[in-house]
Structure formats: structure tokens, C-alpha cells
Design a protein around this nucleic acid. Structure first.
Lengths: 244, 244
DNA sequence: TCGCTTTCGCTACGAGTCGTAGCGTAACTG
DNA sequence: CAGTTACGCTACGACTCGTAGCGAAAGCGA
């Protein structure tokens, strides 16, 4: 039961002569979804036929379905358009290419990740790992994620989108879990800003990278037993210092 | 200075009516490269014009070059053929598709990974991480690796090839490093076969996954400082038990 | 109600890639 | 020498991409 498209993930907004593209966008921007009505910018929006929000949803749904059934290589723009009951040109009015379309289609899945705060760092990590593993077990995610990352190694614009929509939401969980553990007293408070960021980065790469590698590359399942072991590995130094 | 194609990585061998494909191939097979002259099988091989070994090398070199310059998406069979000075049909006589060709082209790079045995587990891990990071820093590897993994999620035949040529050589290092540490006394000897395999798997996924995620997805470099920290994370439980 | 503007569905198109087939020739064996 | 296989070349059908042009639809303001 995935959430039924709560904010209807807005499209990529390929409008002619809009192009406020390279806005710096503060790195810690907390708004996960941008308003579909473009309240910012102040440009008049009430002219001409409005874009069909139903088409947006139909296209993104069709993209996820096609991803699950046909995989990345089998997904074509023409197929998605047909399945969504929409003209192919309508796709290209919203997304400049397949890559951006798939990022948006998959991004909403990553919005479902939440930080539980179960009362202990160990429990929180295990919960996050389990959530992430479940997400990676879905065929849409499997088909899209590595292919997107691969495309991103050559396209910096796409890499930015991926980071915003997929990577940062994951990293946010690490940050939240860490600060929760600090308020609980399980972890020492930050002494230094730079060190804290490095620590978050290394933990994030370790959790995300290891789980992805296990599921997508080694091709083995994430069992509760494995999660327990892996969490133990991460927590290695701490139990002995703080008494679990 | 990469090694200049030492064993000239043999092609995929798409010969008509050969097909001893699903040989079990013992898991611990130590021979990293198969002989290009197919001495096994005993089938008469000395009939007709032999395949050009020079063409093999030219094709694989051209593939790596094209990968580095154009990326995965920009690499086409026609382009590789032209660059190798070879007809396109010659490519298809040896490799059934782009995927298999790229696996073989990249596999030789992974053969360069070696286990150093520097006298301590910590030093060995740091050396392996550094080697792997250097490999991932090369443009051919970056362009190919994630794309291959992505294709592998849908193609089990390809997944098997990837595992043989890319994943297993890496995992072998973990096994070697672990057993070296055991003979040194840094790690307890295996009490149980299954547990040992699980431990190797989890360490392997953690090292490979984390380094890949850091380099290819987070897009940040692997510095000596980072390597030191990450190794410390892995070794977490041990320094306190064994006195570094 | 009437323009104005923008989106929509449709068809068609050029460019590019894939993987294969057919041909004549080159290389090697017995 | 005949027999066999690899090679280079050309051409092909099928497919995808991303775009252009058209008439119709759906909103808005006067």
C-alpha cells in the first residue's frame, strides 16, 4: 500500500522561456516537493489552457508500471505515452527526456522513507535499513535506480536532480537519526561542524551503499538477521563505550 | 600505468553450436582468465581460418577508449568497430551484444586488484580500499560499472558473467585478507563454515558498496583520511579486543 | 459572448542504432 | 588441391528518439 501520490509529484516544468535553472538552491533546503502552482517568481500563471494534473499522474503511474514490467531498457517514451492515454508530445512538454521523467517517477517512492525514532540508535538504524531494503526490493526501484545513477555519471544536470530527489532524502534520515541519538545521550554532541558532516557522510555512504550492493549487485535478500549483524557492525565502537 | 593487457582477455566465444554454457564451474575456481585456445573440451580447433587475436585486442581497447570518451550511452557497436578498424559483423561474431562486450572490456581492469598482505588487517584494508577507489576513479570504469549492474538486474545470464568477471575477483580479496589476518592471529579462526561465509559477504558488501556509493553516487573523492576513518569503522570492535 | 493564449491529440518526419543476411575474399589445414 | 572458417563490406528491416505542424479543446479577461 504505497501512499496514493500525496502531492502528485510535480513535473519537471519544461516551459518555454522560463529558465531560472541555475538558481543555487541552498543545500539544506527543507522543502521536499515544490509547489505545482509556482507561487514563487510571481509570473502570471492564469493564461491559456492549464496543464492537466490528471495527465501528470497518469504519466508518472505509467512510468512506474512500465519500469516494473519492462525494466529500464524496455521503457520507451512512446510506450509510456500510450499506456498513460496521452500523446507522446505531451510527455516531452513536461520532461526533456526519459532520464528526468524516471527521476520524478521514482522520487515519490523515496519520499515514503521516514525516520521512526524508536528510542534507541540500534532500533532506529535497523528500521531505516529495513525500510530501504523494502524499497529496493520493488521492481520499479530496481529497474530505475542503478540506471539513473549510471546516467548521472555523465550528466551533471541529471546528477543534481537525482541528488535532490533521491539521495538527499536518504541522507536526511541519517542526520535525523543521529541528532535523535544525541538528544537521547547515546552519541556525544557535535564538537565541530565539519567533523559532524564528515561523520554523517561516511555513515550515509556506508548504509546506503552496503544495502544497495547487497540487494542490487550481490543479489541477496536483506533478512532481519542480516540487518542485525550489519547494525552491529556500524555500532561497533559504541556498545562497549555506552553499554548498548 | 595500467598493465598492458597481460593475458589479452579472451572474447566471449560466441561460436555456433558450441554451447557448453551451463557448466557448474566450481565456485573457488582460481584461474582468472580462460585460455584463448580452448585446450579443454578436446574439440578439434584447427580447421578453417583462425580468429584474429589482434582483432580481439583492438576491439577491447577500442571499447575501453570509447567508454572513457563517450560513456555508456554514447558507446555504439558501430563506433567501436570503426575505431578498432574492424567490421561490425566481426564484433557480433564474438559478443552477442554490447553488454557482454563491455563486461569483458572492463573485466581485465578488475584483474589488476591484488591483495597486498602488509602485515596488519588495518593496512590491508586501507590498501584494498585505495586500490578499489583508484579503479573507480577511471572514466572507463565509471561509465561502465553502474550501467552493467543496471542491465544485470534484468538479465540473469549477464548477471552471471558480471559476477564471475567483476564481483568475484573483488570478493576474493576479502577472503584472502581475512584468512591472512587469521593466520596472523588478528582474527579468530572460523568456527563454522556458514558463519564465515556470511561474515565475508557482509564485509564484502560493506566495503564494495560503500566505496562505490561514495565515488559514483555521492561523487566525492576517497582521500587517505576518509580511508582511515572508514577502516576504523569496519575495525570498530577489534581494536578494543585485540589492542590495534 | 468573444478573442487570446496555452495545451492537447494526432500524424509525420529525419536521424540514429540495433542485430542480421548475403556476398566475395582471405587464411589456414589436411 | 579442396574444405572450412573468419573477415570486410554493403544493405536491410525494425525500432527509438525527439521535433514539427496541424486543428481542436480549455481556460482567462474584456
Amino acid at each position: 500500500m504505497p501512499a496514493p501520490q500525496p502531492p502528485a509529484t510535480p513535473p519537471h516544468e519544461v516551459r518555454p522561456a522560463e529558465a531560472p535553472q541555475d538558481v543555487p538552491r541552498g543545500p539544506g533546503l527543507p522543502t521536499p516537493t515544490r509547489s505545482p502552482e509556482t507561487p514563487e517568481g510571481g509570473a502570471a500563471r492564469a493564461k491559456g489552457r492549464p496543464r492537466s494534473a490528471a495527465a501528470d499522474r497518469a504519466i508518472l503511474d505509467a512510468t512506474r508500471e512500465a519500469l516494473a514490467e519492462l525494466g529500464w531498457g524496455g521503457l520507451t517514451m512512446g510506450h509510456v505515452a500510450t499506456r498513460a492515454g496521452v500523446a507522446k508530445t505531451t510527455l516531452y512538454r513536461r520532461w526533456p527526456s526519459k532520464n528526468e521523467l524516471v527521476v520524478d517517477a521514482v522520487a515519490s517512492l523515496f519520499d515514503e522513507l521516514v525516520m521512526p525514532d524508536l528510542g534507541s540508535l540500534r532500533a532506529d538504524i535497523e528500521a531505516v535499513v529495513t525500510q530501504f531494503a523494502d524499497l529496493l526490493a520493488r521492481p520499479e526501484t530496481q529497474a530505475a535506480l542503478l540506471a539513473l545513477f549510471a546516467e548521472g555519471t555523465r550528466d551533471r544536470q541529471l546528477r543534481r536532480r537525482i541528488r535532490e530527489a533521491i539521495v538527499d532524502p536518504q541522507k536526511r534520515l541519517v542526520r535525523q537519526g543521529r541528532s535523535a541519538a544525541q538528544t537521547r545521550g547515546e552519541l556525544a554532541p557535535d564538537c565541530d561542524e565539519a567533523t559532524a558532516r564528515e561523520e554523517i557522510d561516511i555513515i550515509f555512504d556506508t548504509i546506503a551503499g552496503t544495502v544497495e550492493h547487497r540487494v542490487l549487485i550481490s543479489g541477496e535478500p536483506i533478512t532481519p538477521e542480516w540487518t542485525r549483524r550489519f547494525t552491529g557492525l556500524l555500532l561497533g565502537p559504541f556498545p562497549s563505550l555506552l553499554g548498548d
